[in-house]
Design a protein around this nucleic acid. Structure first.
Lengths: 222, 222
DNA sequence: ACCTGAACACCGTTCAAGT
DNA sequence: ACCTGAACACCGTTCAAGT
């Protein structure tokens, strides 16, 4: 919660820059050039100020990143029309979160946070937990189910994002390709068998398939 | 594969440090003080040399980290006794990988790699793919299944590791706790209902439950 | 209250030269 | 072939002082 709109209690030098301006400018840098280009110094010059001025509006860089995540979630997480059937509601909600995150790869570095806990994301968590409960899970199992879905979703994003990063800034064959070409088929027969299609198989987007499997497993008879 | 044991082809100044020594020393630093303390300069002084000497044995820091991961996998990924039943074999293999990674939180920053593709980890991938095939999946579905399991596993590790990091270097209440105390029960009834137990529920280790659900869902009738 | 300048204590990596 | 010294082009953050 930014305090920018709070009335000024005491007199003093009028602020030249605001927390909001800091976040907005940071967002512009990140969108244009990636998180790794966001530095306090760069941000300061972009904003026409000095590094230290930023520390009056933001505790440190870590906090700035969290604010950035929040800002992103607030702007882009649109609540979708949800199906009536609770199982499908769980799927659709998770898929929406996944889509928002996938569109924003830089987020990974921040988001590997405890939980997807931007206030604006809570509604999504609610939908998933509620859907699982309506499908018959006791509330503790529903929370655990939500966690499992979150692990799976975050994992997919992180793994894919890093794979993409490796691909762009590295021209030589990946370590994986190297490994797969000289596979011993007597020791690792299955891998040798699929070696040729491995990279095409792993490039396919199977997030939804895995999600459906996970939800089926969470709800299925045990 | 280190080239340290290759016979020297041409004459020249005899090497004072080896790639192996670089990796071993790096490992010691990381084990003792965490990845964030591993810098090329630090490593150089620790090894009794200069930063630039390292670049004769390692392409750059990125490569050093990959070597470190490989080294870790080779030393600690012990092949377990596996159950005969294929479904249980998949579970047991994934659990072993998970355990090795969980014991080594620094690995997250590296491991968010394309795949868990250290050569020594391939045997584990083989077991999972093979188990899924023996349970009746066609080989492409088995590879996708492996990917889903990997996403789930990597996600669990990443999320938990970051949560732990936040907890240690931050004394004030987490953002999450803050959010959960002022939940609106009319807007988010389910979350309000479980708010009190949320943190205990999310601290529980439910990796295995989620894994079982996922594997059930991957194999179950659809 | 808010901002500035200078400084502290670092980074990864390159270049040119030495042995 | 291997190593060194000095330098480049940066970091995040603190401190003391200014308005």
């Amino acid at each position: 919660m930014p305090q920018t709109s709070a009335p000024r209690k005491t007199l003093g030098r009028p602020p030249r820059i605001s927390r909001e301006e800091v976040v907005t400018t940071a967002r512009r840098i990140v969108d244009a050039e990636g998180v790794h280009r966001l530095t306090m110094r760069r941000l300061a010059t972009e904003i026409g100020s000095t590094p230290m001025a930023l520390y009056h509006h933001v505790r440190n860089k870590e906090e700035l990143l969290v604010l950035l995540l929040d800002d992103y979630a607030t702007r882009t997480l649109q609540r979708p029309e949800l199906p009536a059937q609770p199982r499908e509601r769980v799927i659709a909600t998770a898929a929406t979160i996944h889509e928002a995150l996938a569109a924003c790869p830089w987020i990974v570095e921040v988001l590997t946070a405890d939980d997807l806990m931007a206030t604006s994301a809570l509604w999504f968590v609610e939908q998933i937990v509620d859907g699982l409960i309506e499908c018959g899970l006791p509330s503790e199992r529903a929370v655990h189910g939500y966690r499992a879905i979150w692990y799976y979703t975050a994992g997919e994003i992180v793994v894919r994002a890093t794979a993409a990063r490796r691909r762009t800034d590295d021209t030589r064959p990946t370590y994986r390709e190297q490994v797969f070409t000289d596979l011993d088929p007597t020791e690792l027969p299955r891998l040798a068998q699929v070696a040729d299609h491995w990279s095409s198989l792993t490039t396919e987007d199977t997030y939804l398939d895995g999600l459906r499997a996970l939800v089926d497993g969470l709800l299925g008879p045990r």
